[in-house]
Design a protein around this nucleic acid. Structure first.
Lengths: 137, 137
DNA sequence: TCTTGACTTGGACTCTGTCCATTGTAGGAT
DNA sequence: ATCCTACAATGGACAGAGTCCAAGTCAAGA
């Protein structure tokens, strides 16, 4: 995560305690927190941090390509720091848990030219839905 | 669409003018309206129809498997009546337009057993993102 | 240390969707 | 054709997620 901070500083990001705390909260794999969860965890380290700042910071991290925004359920968006390792998501219909997974093959190539209708296709998101072990038990 | 109404009646759906109007609004291919858009169009035919009824009806159509709920952007959900023809979505990052597309291959089979982590995988959603012709012009 | 433009704050506001008590009505029963 | 009643519609209050903005604060270069 410190390399993330370095990278951001290198891009002219002004380093504030708020931004540092948000970045720290987002560290790790299989992290898929909502903005509100990020706020709660950030506030545990830095009580004065505001919701607006958390939203701003998350938005910037997304624009910078350091974090991926995931909306699997039409409810709160989730923020996934695992942005530099292409992956898909496996979502539990029961509890909403999310796992990062790595399918085989490249789904982009599954969309033939005649199905592109003049679009410049840049990315593909794949969400597998199912029931996780604890929910099916 | 009248077969839809027939099917619903056959399942014990009480046919009201409100439900009929909502079903009519959702007729067609490449239809991906938000609940609010459905309400506006329905109200053009039946001015007294309430938002709550539109939400209720859409929810029922989704439960019945006649309409698919799509949330591509974390904003308003969209409702896709093309439920009986499996397909994926191609979304324009510029204007948000959605096209139904039919990729080759079966993405479900791209998730090998060792990447399922004990989940019972039931479905997969694929969203291609790109820029549509009018936005790239 | 000073300065300044970028950052943060918090509260009001918007948008999307849900809830619920009340009123209305579709469609089977008579 | 009319009556009943369970199911459906209404609309207004409410809730959750996110945005906006004017005022105050501060990181970091000079």
């Amino acid at each position: 995560m410190s390399d993330l901070l370095e990278r951001l500083r290198g891009r002219g990001w002004r380093m504030t305690s708020q931004r540092r705390v948000v970045a720290e909260v987002l560290d790790g794999e299989h992290v898929h927190l909502t903005a509100d969860e990020v706020h709660v965890r950030a506030a545990a380290k830095l009580p004065e941090i505001s919701r607006a700042t958390v939203y701003n910071t998350l938005g910037e991290l997304v624009s910078l390509g350091e974090v991926i925004e995931v909306s699997t359920d039409g409810r709160a968006k989730r923020y996934d720091p695992n942005a530099h390792r292409p992956h898909q998501h496996l979502v539990c219909s029961g509890c909403g848990a999310i796992r990062d997974v790595r399918p085989q093959g490249n789904p982009l190539s599954d969309l033939p030219a005649e199905e592109r209708y003049g679009f410049t296709v840049e990315a593909v998101e794949v969400t597998y839905r199912g029931v996780c072990p604890s929910c099916s038990a």
